Amino acid sequence: MSVSEISHSRTLPEPRAMLRLIKPITWFPPMWAYLCGIVSAGVSPTGQWWLVILGVLLAGPIVCGMSQAANDWCDRHVDAINEPDRPIPSGRIPGRWGLWIALGMSVLSLAVGYQLGPWGFGATIVGVLAAWAYSAEPVRLKRSGWWGPGLVGLSYEGLPWFTGAAVLSATAPSLQVCLLALLYAVGAHGIMTLNDFKALEGDRVMGVNSLPVTMGPARAAKLACWVMAVPQVIVVALLFTWDRPLHGLAVAGVLAFQIWAMRVLLNDPKGNAPWYNGTGVTLYVSGMMIAAFAVRTVGL
């Protein structure tokens, strides 16, 4: 049976396809960043564990899941070229069900975010708007290899980190916390650029100007490595400035291993990008948590 025949024969979404639509594998970065924010706040979660649990669920399965559903709906024509077996182009999520799921999860995101108080609700509004601005016309920042990955980096790393710290402390985070969240969000631009390698052919056909399309895989990979590494060098310098030399050395250590992984990546950028996303990115987020523990007592 062809994809079109499957699409016309199904009227309700396949449950497994609905789970694949919201891509559980993508939930980890914002959940981890939210926990980094919780740690960096320097406030005991005793008596506030519900804020921790609810925030993690909001950052991952709900808001991130919503953003993936919105992206798949808006990218259904690109996915028909790159990944025709994905839930929407394959017909396992038929008709406009992909859109209804994304819209329903947007409403759910706002309802849950409201439970986290003004800081959490405000951040949720920003996150929902960013998700649609990235994927949907007429804005569709995904078309830009600069603005698209930048927005995703801020939404996946910077915003959840800021939110976790603000929600737990019920006030604006310190300058040190904001700097770390921003630096790691900037570095995530490089991670998002590497993630674009898997859609290279479809993006080229559909006019999505990702950096791998506009610069070529080799140059885009080199730029991504610099974008990931430079913010971490600044983090190390800041940790030494804030009298946290052991934490600074630890972040420098994970960066050194990342540089080794980057050298492997650059031998075959397109082929090794998935490997780096599993190896180098794990080291990257480890450095995030080290920095979060370092800054929790700065200024006390």
Rank of each mutant, 00 (worst) to 15 (best):
A123H: 06
P149H: 05
L151K: 07
L168W: 04
F121A: 10
P138Q: 11
G113S: 06
T171K: 09
D203E: 08
L103R: 15
I191W: 05
M192H: 13
T163K: 00
G150N: 11
D196Y: 07
Q176F: 13
V213C: 00
Q115M: 14
G158I: 00
L183H: 06
G122W: 05
A111S: 09
S174D: 07
N209R: 15
I125R: 04
V167L: 13
T193H: 02
L200A: 11
A133R: 01
N209C: 13
G190V: 08
L179S: 03
V208S: 10
Q115W: 07
S106D: 07
T193D: 07
L159I: 09
L194I: 11
R140L: 05
V167S: 02
L110H: 09
S155Y: 03
D203V: 12
V177E: 04
E137V: 12
G202Q: 12
G187M: 07
V112L: 15
Q115P: 05
S144M: 02
L116F: 06
Y156D: 04
G153V: 02
V139N: 07
P217Q: 10
T214S: 15
M192K: 02
L180M: 15
S106H: 12
L110Q: 06
A123C: 14
A166T: 04
S155P: 06
G120R: 00
F162I: 09
Y184W: 08
P212D: 08
T163C: 04
S174K: 13
Q115Y: 05
G158C: 14
W161E: 02
L110F: 13
Y134R: 01
L129S: 11
V205A: 13
A172L: 13
Y134N: 06
G190C: 08
G150A: 14
F197P: 01
V208R: 07
G127F: 01
G150S: 08
